[in-house]
Design a protein around this nucleic acid. Structure first.
Lengths: 129, 129
DNA sequence: CTGAATCCCTGCCGATACTG
DNA sequence: CAGTATCGGCAGGGATTCAG
């Protein structure tokens, strides 16, 4: 069976790392860190939109019409706080705010790709109750 | 998967797949599929435990002492339903139930690894509000 | 235009108690 | 041993309204 066990290169292993021994969900677990960053409905769609390039508040609202102002604002604030997004206000009038991914946020690309790849695989036919 | 790159200069982000144009969170988006599978507190820890090998209900409870019976039961049922886990009852007495990852579930390894890797990176110092 | 404040409703998850 | 039943607290998120 080819499975990652003891004795692999200096790569942080998932089940083998000491930190992977946490007995409860805690912010010190890197997996929890990432899931916390992606937490919340619409979050990944906002990131996807910004992976295509910088956007303003209105542009994001236009791209995601079913997303309310409040939640969009919440998501953006959250993503800025965890260092995924960068906010650049425009002193002009009308006030425009541009959002873009930080380098750290851009590294979420491979993560979303991994999520995409697994979800695109056909699961075995589940039995319905 | 059709990967028509539409002139992303330096860093192509998410796949430029037609499905990536969804305007709202929907089960048809593969990213949502995966996040739905991983949804819920304790879920990734249960998977991590089973990445190390098959476990019974009690063994999982022992490995995650702060997890209540009900939630553990919920998580296991959910993961079985989405095709991540495989349940094998023992007709014997006392009744033992063995849980193990399906091939599909085992492919979550790289996904969790991607989540781990990003979360393990040092984010830029967050600005204070 | 870009957000913050408020209200309400829903679903999660923890605790406890009970069954095959 | 391996779950299900039930209840309650609390946070997430949608709609609306108001402010800078």
């Amino acid at each position: 069976m080819t499975h990652q066990t003891v004795g692999h290169p200096p790569r942080p292993g998932l089940p083998d790392d000491p930190l992977a021994s946490v007995g409860e969900p805690t912010p010190s677990c890197p997996v929890e860190v990432t899931l916390a960053a992606l937490r919340g409905r619409w979050t990944t769609l906002v990131i996807r939109e910004l992976l295509r390039g910088d956007r303003t508040f209105s542009e994001l609202r236009q791209a995601l019409p079913a997303l309310s102002d409040k939640v969009l604002s919440d998501r953006l604030a959250h993503l800025v706080q965890v260092g995924v997004l960068d906010r650049r206000r425009q002193a002009d009038w009308p006030p425009r705010t541009h959002y873009g991914l930080t380098p750290h946020g851009r590294r979420l690309g491979p993560v979303l790709q991994a999520l995409w790849d697994w979800g695109a695989q056909q699961p075995p036919p589940a039995s319905e109750p």
